[in-house]
Write a protein that binds this DNA or RNA. Structure first.
Length: 1078
RNA sequence: GGGCGAUUAGCUCAGUUGGUUAGAGCGCCGCUCUGAUAAGGCGGAGGUCCGUGGUUCGAAUCCACGAUCGCCCA
């Protein structure tokens, strides 16, 4: 099966018949509606296979609910604004920093960003269609749209009116390349383990000549901003003597000092012990006191207290630079320390830092070490490995920098958010805990970014009085505008155009300008449940579709990103949940279980996988997987392998894992092709035949019962957002259909006359196939369509045009039969045991056997087995079935203690009871339990009575009999082969060989033939005896047998002859000749 | 550094309120069936249930400590 080929054909047919449009319009008039909101995909690159996982879920639940008759919005969304786009456009343009963007022109740059977004949105739309994701693509939303941006303005204004917006001065993680702050949400995505050179420096104490504080830092660039040193007041410190100098450091690290001293230092000796609090207030000379920046600060260096200081790293004396570290900055507030912010937004030292001015933080480590050494501040360097934050987008190491940024206060929102999170159904359930954990611990939301392409934050600051206010809409801005409206009018609300507009300060009447910052992109995504549902312009419509019934995204990251930002928006605007159910799924890994990364070369482009493996197979992989577990995406053939196969006219050979994944689909395809083969031969038309189910066989009614149960399971699963159990139920049914129903029914299709039995078989199999096809429609839309067209539409022009326009199947509970289910399970079990027994005896199934002796667990099962004996016998090629009586000498018994009952009952004695039971003669014990229902044991000189509830009797076959057993059921076979049985076996072997010859001769299944057999006298005699059977099985109109003389078989065109070696026919060599009958 | 979770066959994972021979699928080896099959069936090999101690008549399961890994938060 070449699935990609089939899918291309189906897609073409859909296009030709406009099926997508008909699908989107199918429930236009429906009164019930189901609301799905698509999480915006970043329109910045083509899709990878990891995107296809979520998009498969998104599509399948929309399809399922379409088939169930719900009106829906089939809207997909594209995340359009933000640094990720800027970075890619910078790459395209060859820019290295923000200055180049400004020189190029912000307007041009922003237009480039828009272009890129539209380009990749189009690409992703095509790819999604290839996946079979059916969406209303002309109606897709973009977070860069005016609607989206202005809805955020309104939301921010509401926040401002509530007093939640504030301007903060804080030390933030900062990317010096992107020249922007990194929010708490983003910082986690870029943590990496790296090697840095840390430095130990010594700071001379002002009032203690020859004595130094020994401090340690991993960020030497912050030393010029040193203001203080912190010690833990409760920690022990020591004064050590080394080379005539005295150092103060934590008592715990003296050992380290000796290890670290290298060639430059002598041995260290402790001369005094003291507490951290003893050091407080000591003044020291800073390492860069000569710099103008420090001179201007007019401050002095001293030792301060900080109880977070430990001796685990460094020296227990911590270098404090309040302008370069978060904790440092926090400390500066309480201790009124000076704050030095040494670098600009690009991480370049500002004026006042002398020789450092103009250098960037990344290049100063060495020069600073040298400088310290020259000035006598250097002690030692040490290579140090640690986890350090990097820019999640460009990979640059972050610095910490004092900045002015804008925040939404979470103080009042936090409780609302927690309450709302509890109103949502999180799948898997731990999602709620994760979200709550974040909500409890999160800081205020930093919403500003000093970039170009993004939401223009509508915050206007007065040039005169520094008061700010937030504008909530375009209309409000126009009313308030006193300057620059003409330049803005006609443009999207983006930089640079919107920046031209000035308003009058409401407080002092001065000019107020928009801050130049753009917004955090999660504002863009979070507003989607409002903006896409026309919250601003059509509140009626919004009320109809809000909240979303369902959203689904890969959960790593989203708890603090999209889920979070939606919660914030909904909490701020309406104080209610923006969605009812969220399905989170885990991470897609490569075949070895490693993270996929483009840079690692192991990420798989969607197009490649779709081309080689196909969309349905990929979708099936996703839907059958447990969503909360990571999924390893199996290897796909390389382009070369795929092309080599296609050159030979074959589909690319897939790995075992793929074949395993796809096996249910392959089996279905085979059943389907079996049906089609015979239906064509017989010209069977399901629309003109019928037969009441009650008139069909047990086998038919069994499979129809299983079918109803499958419909129920699939429906319940999908309705509960559980694709895995739904799809596995369908797979299990296909397995039953293929390996039991069709296997057991084959002869009914082969036989030539069309009787009620054959009609029942056709109708039953047809119903199963059609129903399964509909169940598969949301899961594997291409395959389902292909089957549907051929099975249904080709014979019934009145049926819905496409499987995707059909109604979802409803289980007919009247057809459910637990009895048939149980009995068929019993037959299957007995057949398996019989096959196992044959295997042990090394007698192949083609050789008929005389008797199968069976034992089952209960009288009811025994009764059923006798009634269904023919199925067992036919399947096992055995003549007769006999039930084994309990006292049969073929059986041997063992006693199995049921500890779950015995344990609690006997307590301390339990182990001894167990030992006594094991010492008991099993046969006598079994008999006692059978006859009297109890068994008496002697334990520690007292008698203990065990009942049938406490001991299970297990029967198995006595040694010497060829048997198999499982859970109380036993099958024993009679292995004596009579001449008649041997002859029958031989005939079946021969028949099988003629079928092979037919196949080799290239004959069609339904072709009648003429057959000649030339062999020894024994086989000839048998062949003649079984002539009727052989002719019937091989469709031979004429069957000529000879054992001597010149061959009677013809030769020439259309005649096919094979010599059969004696080994294949139990010692009889033969020549078989066939020719298509005229 | 703090919190949570995990560790079971070569791989991916199940394993009920603790119950005495620890399972599945795949892979591997052998056999077998088949005029629907890239199918199916049967058998086999493969386990220190991460380690150590404890609780218990009985521990993969409960407790403690340790190791390793993952996730979340600093």
């Amino acid at each position: 099966m070449d699935y990609p080929l089939l899918e291309r054909g189906v897609q073409q047919w859909w296009d030709d018949h406009d099926i997508l449009k008909k699908y989107l319009n199918r429930n236009e008039q429906a009164s019930k509606r189901w609301s799905f909101v698509d999480g915006p995909i970043t329109a910045n690159n083509p899709m990878g296979v990891h995107h296809a996982w979520g998009r498969t879920y998104k599509d399948l639940w929309q399809r399922f609910n379409t088939m169930r008759g719900y009106r829906q919005r089939y809207q997909n969304g594209f995340d359009s604004q933000g640094l990720w786009v800027e970075v890619e456009v910078e790459k395209e343009l060859g820019f290295k920093n923000k200055r180049e963007i400004e020189e190029y022109g912000i307007g041009l740059f922003v237009e480039k960003c828009k272009e890129r977004v539209l380009r990749f949105a189009e690409r992703i739309t095509e790819q999604s269609l290839r996946l079979g994701e059916w969406m209303d693509s002309p109606n897709s939303y973009y977070t860069m749209s005016d609607e989206n941006n202005y809805t955020i303005w309104g939301m921010l204004r509401t926040c401002w009116q509530n007093g939640w917006i504030y301007r903060g001065r804080d030390v933030m993680p900062w990317c010096p390349r992107c020249a922007t702050g990194i929010s708490d949400m983003e910082i986690n995505e870029g943590r990496r383990t790296v090697q840095h050179t840390s430095v130990y420096a010594r700071f001379p104490l002002v009032d203690r000549p020859g004595e130094y504080l020994l401090v340690w830092t991993t960020t030497p660039w912050t030393l010029p901003a040193n203001v203080a040193c912190a010690v833990n007041p409760d920690l022990h410190y020591v004064k050590v003597e080394q080379d005539g100098d005295f150092y103060y450091l934590s008592a715990d690290v003296v050992g380290k000092l000796n290890k670290l001293r290298g060639h430059e230092h002598g041995a260290a000796k402790v001369v005094e012990t003291l507490e951290g609090r003893d050091l407080l207030g000591w003044r020291y000379t800073g390492p860069f006191d000569e710099l103008p920046a420090w001179q201007d600060a007019g401050a002095e260096h001293r030792v301060v207290a900080w109880d977070e200081v430990t001796a685990a790293e460094g020296t227990g004396i911590v270098h404090i630079a309040p302008g370069c570290g978060r904790e440092d900055f926090g400390l500066s507030k309480g201790d009124h320390l000076a704050v030095l912010a040494p670098v600009d937004e690009n991480g370049v030292y500002l004026d006042g830092y002398d020789w450092l001015t103009g250098m960037s933080v990344g290049e100063v480590a060495r020069p600073i070490f040298e400088n310290l050494r020259e000035k006598g501040y250097f002690y030692q360097t040490e290579s140090y490995q640690h986890v350090y934050p990097h820019c999640w987008r460009c990979g640059t190491e972050l610095i910490f920098r004092l900045v002015n940024e804008w925040f939404i206060s979470m103080h009042e929102l936090r409780e609302r958010l927690i309450r709302i999170a509890n109103d949502i159904r999180w799948i898997p359930a731990f999602g709620l805990d994760r979200e709550l954990d974040w909500l409890r611990n999160m800081e205020d939301w930093m919403i500003s970014k000093k970039r170009y392409w993004g939401l223009a934050l509508p915050i206007y600051v007065c040039d005169d009085c520094d008061e700010f206010e937030v504008i909530g809409s375009r209309e409000e801005l126009r009313e308030r505008a006193v300057e620059g409206w003409e330049q803005f009018d006609g443009h999207t609300p983006h930089r640079p155009w919107v920046d031209a507009v000035k308003i009058r300060c409401a407080k002092c009447g001065g000019f107020a300008s928009r801050i130049l910052d753009v917004g955090n992109p999660w504002l863009d995504a979070g507003i989607v449940p409002f903006s896409t549902l026309h919250y601003r312009g059509n509140r009626e419509y919004w009320r109809e579709w809000f909240p979303a019934d369902f959203i689904t995204e890969s959960f790593p990251g989203q708890f603090r990103n999209w889920f979070y930002s939606m919660l914030v928006m909904a909490a701020a605007l309406e104080d209610t949940a923006p969605f009812k159910t969220v399905l989170g799924f885990a991470t897609l890994k490569d075949e070895k279980g490693e993270e996929m990364h483009k840079s690692k070369g192991n990420s798989i482009p969607f197009d490649e996988a779709a081309h080689v493996v196909g969309a349905d197979t990929m979708r099936w992989l996703y839907v059958t997987h447990a969503p909360e577990q990571n999924l390893n995406f199996p290897r796909i053939p390389t382009d070369e392998e795929a092309e080599a196969a296609r050159a030979k006219g074959q589909p690319p050979r897939l790995s075992d894992l793929w074949m395993q994944t796809r096996s249910a689909l392959d089996k279905l395809w085979n059943v389907y092709s079996f049906f089609v083969t015979y239906a064509n031969i017989d010209e069977f038309d399901p629309t003109t035949r019928s037969l009441a189910v009650s008139k069909r066989s047990d086998l038919d009614r069994w499979v129809l019962s299983e079918l109803q149960a499958t419909v129920q399971r699939a429906t319940e699963g999908l309705a509960d957002f559980d694709a895995e159990s739904a799809s596995l139920a369908v797979a299990a049914f296909i397995e039953n259909l293929s390996n039991w129903y069709v296997r057991r029914s084959r002869r009914r299709f082969w036989k030539s006359e069309e009787d009620a039995d054959k009609r029942a078989a056709y109708l039953t199999l047809y119903e199963c196939l059609v129903t399964v096809t509909k169940l598969l429609a949301p899961l594997t839309p291409f395959l389902a369509e292909s089957l549907y067209q051929n099975l249904v539409r080709s014979v019934d022009a009145s049926a819905p045009e496409s499987v995707h326009l059909c109604d979802w199947p409803v289980a007919d509970v009247k057809l459910l039969s637990p009895r048939l289910h149980d009995e068929t399970s019993l037959v299957m079990r007995m057949v398996n045991l019989g096959r196992a027994a044959r295997e042990k005896a090394q007698i192949r199934v083609r050789q008929p056997l005389g008797v199968l002796y069976a034992r089952v667990g209960s009288d009811a099962e025994a009764e059923a087995l006798q009634r269904l004996a023919s199925q067992v016998l036919e399947e096992l090629n055995v003549k007769r079935l006999e039930l084994l009586p309990a006292d049969s000498d073929m059986l041997v018994y063992s006693l199995k203690p049921l500890m779950k009952v015995l344990g609690p009952k006997h307590g301390n004695l339990a182990q001894k009871v167990l030992a006594a039971l094991r010492a008991t003669d099993a046969h006598a014990g079994a008999e006692a339990l059978r006859e009297r229902g109890s068994l008496v044991l002697k334990v520690d000189k007292q008698e203990v009575t065990l009942t049938a509830d406490e001991v299970e009797v297990e029967a198995s076959a006595r040694e010497g009999y060829v048997a198999a057993e499982e859970r109380g059921a036993v099958a024993v076979i009679e292995t004596t082969l009579t001449p008649e049985l041997l002859a029958e076996g031989l005939v079946r072997d021969f028949t099988h060989l003629v079928q092979e010859v037919r196949k080799h001769a290239g004959l069609a299944i339904e072709d009648s033939i003429e057959t000649w057999l030339s062999t020894d006298a024994d086989l000839a005699a048998i062949a003649v005896e079984y002539r009727g059977y052989i002719e019937q099985e091989t469709l031979s109109k004429r069957f000529t047998v000879q054992s001597e003389g010149a061959s009677l078989a013809p030769s020439g065109d259309g005649v096919y002859r094979e010599n059969i070696p004696a080994a294949k026919l139990n010692g009889h060599a033969a020549t078989v000749t066939v020719r298509k009958a005229r």
